[in-house]
């Protein structure tokens, strides 16, 4: 009995230490965003919002956020149709070379992001294409489409084909059956995939870093700022960044839960 209690206490203690290890660094970032001190360090000098006001006054930062939104939207617009259509292809059809295609479309999930970035940098350069927002969009799409594919394919596999056949049997053409029956069934998964795609794009550094040229996105801007100097403004923008991505993450979680029912 006592050993059981001891084991339980040890386990809870472990979880507590683990969660502290996760949260203390983030708490440090958050607290120092409100510290009225020119450097992001303790001791506490009083509460202030001036570092948040500084964000609004930083045109580069605002531009980075705007770019991130534009890039994210473009990636969603590209990766969502590519991923969903490829999911249809891989779940529904048999054709020669299917396994090879399967391996290739999933390979970006296990390829370091820098490799994707470097290889596309070389390719676009050989075509004479300037690195910029457009190349960053293509670079991110290369792996984000794989995530969309996985989410869409998982949902599609759960789809009962006889529903589509029933629609055809009742007079719908095959295309109409897909549009009226299958796509509505996929909708929650596609919505989840779109939010995931936007989140991944918004978050991406490794691939983007090589393909962004002279432009900036939010992660790139934060990176270059940290390399330059430590400033509480970085903490403030980090807090905003955390709020944005955690909100999006919560949204994907809710959507995915709905998609899995």
């Amino acid at each position: 009995m006592t050993t059981r209690v001891l084991a339980r206490v040890t386990y809870l203690l472990y979880l507590g230490v683990f969660l502290s290890f996760l949260y203390v660094p983030l708490a440090v970032v958050g607290i120092l965003a409100f510290n009225n001190s020119a450097l992001p360090q303790f001791p506490w000098q009083g509460f202030t919002l001036r570092w948040f006001r500084a964000i609004a006054a930083d045109p580069l930062l605002l531009r980075a956020v705007a770019n991130s939104v534009v890039v994210g939207a473009a990636v969603v617009a590209l990766a969502a149709p590519i991923g969903v259509i490829t999911a249809f292809l891989l779940v529904r059809y048999r054709f020669p070379g299917k396994n090879l295609l399967y391996t290739l479309v999933l390979s970006p999930l296990v390829t370091p992001g820098v490799i994707l970035g470097v290889s596309m940098l070389i390719f676009f350069d050989s075509l004479g294409v300037q690195a910029g927002l457009a190349t960053a969009v293509l670079g991110q799409t290369s792996f984000i489409a794989s995530f969309v594919l996985l989410i869409a394919a998982a949902r599609l596999q759960k789809f009962d084909r006889s529903l589509e056949e029933a629609a055809q049997d009742l007079g719908a053409t095959p295309l109409r059956a897909v549009l009226l029956i299958t796509l509505p069934f996929l909708r929650p998964a596609v919505m989840a995939a779109c939010v995931v795609a936007f989140l991944l794009s918004f978050d991406n550094f490794n691939t983007t870093f090589f393909l962004i040229g002279n432009e900036i996105t939010l992660p790139i801007r934060i990176y270059t700022t940290v390399r330059l100097e430590l400033s509480p403004t970085i903490n403030a923008i980090s807090v905003v960044f955390i709020l944005l991505t955690v909100t999006m993450g919560m949204a994907t979680e809710l959507l995915r839960r709905r998609a899995s029912t």
Binding site: L19, L22, Y23, P25, L26, V28, V29, L32, L39, P40, Q41, F42, L199, D203, F205, P219, I222, Y223, V226, L230, I234, N235, S238, F241, I242, T245, V246, M248, G249, E253
Partner: peptide, 25 residues
């Protein structure tokens, strides 16, 4: 556990800079 998972890698690493730097936490 998901919440820190959604926090960007750059921010999470920056947090450690603040902790480990010379006048850090």
């Amino acid at each position: 556990i998901l919440i820190p998972f959604w926090v960007n890698e750059i921010v999470r690493t920056y947090a450690w800079v603040l902790i480990l730097t010379e006048h850090g936490v």
